[in-house]
Design a protein around this nucleic acid. Structure first.
Lengths: 132, 132
DNA sequence: CTTAAAGCCGTACCTGACTACGGAAGCAAG
DNA sequence: CTTGCTTCCGTAGTCAGGTACGGCTTTAAG
């Protein structure tokens, strides 16, 4: 496998500029460029880029992905696990928070639907109410 | 009630600069300033600022809050409801997405804990795996 | 050999919601 | 009346994670 930046980008569903950006950030190596010319990537780079995409999907930030990539050889499970556990905690917090919002919104919208023609909108009133 | 920007900010738990920012964004009126001087706010402004804070908590963006504020008189429940319903949909999507992440992470971490000393870390391997 | 597409580079710009800065002017307490 | 905290203003910077630009060189196809 011998990829230019464009084919690598296309293959992994990422913009060319993003690949360059990841290189600047140190998430991808600067690949060899034979004879003063253009970057040549291999399947290792593609795998790494794939790793980054999946980790992003898991909610890891680019900085965290940096850390994970330093554990790429798989022999530091403990550290990887700690990172994962922190992330899982945050994900759960976020879910809990969103559920509160969901319930609040749900209640207000139900009141709105029951409202049918009254003067004041329950959603607006709730937001206007002085209570914290 | 006759508030300076500082007391208003303190009363609503917002930075002074943020109040000015909201004014620039059109979320708060420019309050009267008697005699070439400093802004004087009243409890209507405090209520509005409170409204903004609560709506932010509900996940509304400042642009959406602008829209909501235009319905402040409570007589356009239909429109407010539509905004709320859109938001609720987004909140639910986000929750669903985060739950997927939660489950994935949970599985990987369980594998990590069961791993105990094997060569390759399940979390890292999963991210490295070629499968989408 | 020519030409068009793709790659190169540094730098600037984008979104959203602020936050900081710095120097001038106002205001309240003593 | 002075001191010192607030407020005033416009502008610029912050964060993350890119995206865009423009002018230049390389490369691949015909």
């Amino acid at each position: 496998m011998n990829l230019t930046i464009g084919t690598l980008a296309a293959a992994t569903g990422v913009h060319v500029e993003t690949v360059r950006y990841y290189q600047r950030r140190g998430l991808l190596r600067e690949p060899p460029r034979p004879l003063g010319g253009i970057r040549r990537y291999d399947e290792h780079d593609a795998r790494r880029l794939n790793f980054i995409q999946k980790a992003k999907h898991m909610g890891f930030s680019l900085d965290e992905i940096s850390s994970l990539l330093r554990l790429e050889d798989g022999s530091h499970c403990q550290e990887a696990r700690e990172l994962g556990e922190r992330k899982l905690g945050l994900v759960r917090e976020r879910i809990a928070q969103l559920r509160k919002v969901e319930r609040a919104l749900q209640g207000l919208l139900a009141a709105c639907r029951a409202n049918a023609g009254s003067v004041s909108c329950p959603l607006i009133s709730a937001l206007l109410d002085e209570q914290p």
